[in-house]
Amino acid sequence: MLNIKNLVLSIAVLFVAVAAGLSQNIRVINRGYIFDKSDFKASHASTIVQLNHKKFMAAWFGGDHEGSSDVCIWASILKNNSWGKPVKIAKGTTTDNKTYACWNPVLFKAHNGKLYLHYKVGINPREWKAMYKVSADEGKTWSALTALPDGFLGPIKNKPVQLKNGTILYPCSVESIDEKSWTIHLETTDANIKNWKRININCDTFQVIQPTILLYPHNRLQLLARSKQNVIVQSWSADGGKSWSKVTATSIPNPNSGIDAVTTAGGLQLLVYNPLTSGKNWWEGRSVLKLACSRDGITWKDLLTFEDQKTGEFSYPAIIYDKAGFVYATWTDNRKKIAYIKLAVQ
């Protein structure tokens, strides 16, 4: 088992933010890397899920480089503050037994206790296919792969949300073959991952992908997504996700880099994002990674800086809120490692 590095920040780090009625105490409990050594050169696009009150699972894609045919989905389990050795849980095989790269795993545990691994297989994000596997024993074993119905992609990067009525909402997006059009939409299923439906969203003139879902009282929902316009954008639903407002810009800068967000049991909205603007190269602007909070989804305040470097890529975060009230986040560290942090937020 691998011990977490930089573990003992728990004594020290206390951060207080006060703005527009926001006052939050942040305490770093654990911080480090999921693995030190691996069987792959590059890793990216992590996801994390709570298995039970004692265990968590993270997954990511790893291989020679992004898009390489040897890129598979790898996973590790966190137990007793230690991450297990990464194991391969999915290959880039399609239902017709062709092999491509794997992309963007998303772990999701449904209300029925089943654990789902959603991921993509293909030569690039414009031509990939959506697959999923199911585990009934908390990731010890997995079913054979299943392809989503034609025209559906499931969660593109960030976790689904299951409503009280059992409906599952999948934050989704599409990149056109010519790369001139990026659009977001929602996909839904029933509690049994059946009856797939698509809900379109008016993206206006924005080029947007990879949305994440936040929850509010009275069936209100908010989507946040990255854009090519150097800003995080939003869309709102007042009917539990059945319909959505036209996409508009938020006040949050972002260099067209992946984000993720979560709603705590107390109704606090937490967002992990890169706060810089884009540069000439796609990786520029990803050297700083922050955690922000909001109560209304409109006014956001930075709470904590995860990474603050002059150069480098710290990107594609995933964030969850567990049943004990702790926050867990993972992110890419220069395509070599997956970083991890556990926080207490009050």
Rank of each mutant, 00 (worst) to 15 (best):
A292C: 03
N256R: 00
R31N: 12
I193N: 09
S287Q: 14
G241V: 07
A225L: 02
F15I: 14
L221C: 08
Y273E: 01
D36Q: 14
V87H: 11
I213P: 01
K246H: 05
N97A: 13
G63T: 00
K79C: 12
T95I: 15
L215C: 11
D150R: 14
N124D: 15
I168V: 13
K91M: 11
W128K: 05
R286Y: 04
I320K: 11
S46T: 13
I199Q: 14
W142R: 02
E307G: 06
Q222I: 09
A144Y: 05
D239R: 04
V288I: 13
F56D: 03
H65R: 08
F61M: 11
N219I: 00
K85M: 07
S278G: 09
C102T: 13
A58C: 12
L163C: 02
L163F: 05
S82F: 00
L163H: 02
L223P: 02
P149E: 08
A130L: 04
N200V: 05
A110M: 08
K197M: 02
N3A: 09
Y100V: 09
K98D: 13
V327L: 08
S251I: 07
V247C: 01
W331P: 01
T248D: 04
L107C: 08
Q346G: 11
I73S: 06
K41Q: 13
I209Y: 03
S181I: 15
L22T: 10
L270Q: 04
G21F: 03
Q162K: 05
G62N: 03
K336G: 01
K120V: 02
I320V: 14
T332V: 05
M1N: 09
K246L: 06
P105D: 01
A318G: 03
K310L: 11
P275M: 10
T248C: 05
I11C: 09
R220C: 07
I319L: 03
C72T: 12
R295S: 14
N104C: 03
L9K: 12
A58G: 12
Q229R: 02
Y116F: 13
N104R: 13
E66F: 06
N30R: 12
T189Y: 00
D308I: 08
Y328T: 07
K133N: 08
K164D: 15
L224T: 01
T205Q: 14
H118V: 05
K159T: 02
T212R: 03
H118W: 01
G258L: 05
C72V: 11
G267Y: 00
K114T: 10
T94K: 08
C172A: 15
A42D: 09
M1F: 02
V231S: 06
Y340W: 06
K242V: 06
T99L: 10
S23G: 10
G21W: 07
Y100F: 15
Q229D: 14
N30K: 14
N195Q: 10
G325V: 05
K5V: 15
I77C: 06
F326V: 03
A45E: 14
A101S: 13
W282C: 01
L215M: 14
D178G: 03
G67V: 07
R126M: 10
A225W: 07
A19L: 13
K140C: 07
T305V: 15
L215F: 04
